[in-house]
Design a protein around this nucleic acid. Structure first.
Lengths: 237, 237
DNA sequence: ACAGATCTAGACCACATGGTCTATAAATAA
DNA sequence: TTATTTATAGACCATGTGGTCTAGATCTGT
């Protein structure tokens, strides 16, 4: 068929289950549009094959013995090849999906899924898209939203958050403190005397129930003070 | 038909475009399984209707005049009703999708989508699932991954990250500093003399190119020091 | 065995920081 | 109007902090 004229996409498979490895290879070979350039049963070997064959895509099992799959994604990412990673797993574990996507997997499919869906996923990823089956993206989003709910819960103690007792001026002072600025610096930035700054700072300490600037800054950061100011901090897990 | 026996789901629509509002109402009424309990052309009115009718789901347009849609999602969330929000928008703006999902929208659909898909989305959300059309979830993930790439880029200066020059002991000291502990405190925790701590701290300052503990702590936080230690900081935008 | 890094620790000094009190002007609330 | 809050600012003092130098004890790697 026509397809033969189109250049086949190079695929590499990494999975510690050899049976499965061969199964997928057969499936992809039957499809005809893929060229399985190599298979490996562990990440270390897989990485070498990637360097050698520069595959377009790697199907990477998440449950590996030596290094785990997540580490594998990171290391493949560090290679400066354009190789894309499609994560493969037996379980729809939300945390695992979240982490995998976070560190750059272009997709995540379950081993139990129909082969047609696997083929489709591979093609989407090869086309530069990110593919997550509906069931998994649903899982992902639950986890994603949950993590933010937790955060908000932490900060909406916030209504009983000591930060809310600060006056306008005190907030301004605190904001400067969170930039590591001294009394003198704050004073000149706010056009007030140094002793006034000290007064404010002492009031801040009392309100936040801390006894030095470092603790005040930490309190501010951990209680969403910067977030409100439009700053950003980024989630990790 | 049988469906009549099943309790209809209460739906509320909020969209500043009245034409569109009526259009969707008609569509849902034709479907027969929905009961459109109210429509509103702005968030303020919508909130009151929600309090009154306790709908199962709200279709909320993201591009509203008074309050914007994002704020609407948050405020609906604050009501302690179980009302779910399905975001509706004319554009597949990645940032908007990301924010909407982050603050708890159960789904996001485009106005240009086929009505069958809208119906499907509503049903999925009503069934407690989160629904993002493939095209949008793809958009979302690109944005999601990009934001982490930015983070990593920031921290993988990391290879030229000043934190990497710290010795083991210095890291231990810094970790305690990031908890707002004084020289004396650090000394007793590490079973070393206070002056030794001072020496370490001074070395840390030099290596991080800062001149006080607050700046050192801020540097540590902004450069992934805590992340490595298993602590967490959380993303916002 | 020797050079270099690391951890330890002391001495000294200047200055920043934190604690406490007092006090005035202005704005706000009762 | 009076009381309270807020922003301002000074004085005073104890202590914490940061800068610089020196130096011994270990531990590395060559």
């Amino acid at each position: 068929m026509r397809r033969e004229f189109k250049k086949k996409s190079k695929v590499l498979l990494i999975d510690d289950n050899y049976e499965h490895l061969v199964g997928i290879r057969e499936l992809l070979n039957l499809e005809g549009t893929f060229d399985v350039v190599g298979i490996a049963t562990n990440v270390t070997v897989g990485l070498n094959l990637i360097k050698k064959y520069q595959p377009d895509i790697v199907l990477l099992d998440m449950n590996m013995p030596d290094r785990d799959g997540l580490q594998g994604i990171i290391e493949i990412g560090k290679l400066d090849s354009d190789t894309k990673v499609l994560a493969l797993s037996g379980y729809d574990d939300a945390d695992l999906i979240f982490r995998a996507m976070k560190i750059g997997a272009k997709g995540y499919v379950l081993k139990t899924m129909a082969s047609a869906q696997l083929i489709y996923a591979i093609e989407e990823v090869l086309n530069g898209k990110i593919y997550l089956p509906l069931a998994l993206s649903s899982r992902f989003f639950e986890y994603f939203q949950q993590s933010f709910r937790d955060e908000n819960a932490k900060q909406e103690l916030n209504e009983e958050n000591l930060l809310s007792y600060l006056t306008q001026r005190e907030e301004e002072v605190l904001e400067l403190l969170t930039q590591g600025i001294t009394y003198k610096g704050v004073a000149s930035k706010l056009f007030i005397s140094e002793t006034t700054v000290k007064t404010h700072v002492n009031n801040i300490f009392q309100k936040l129930q801390v006894n030095d600037r470092t603790q005040a800054v930490l309190y501010a950061i951990n209680n969403g003070f910067l977030t409100k100011k439009g700053m950003s901090t980024v989630a990790s897990r």
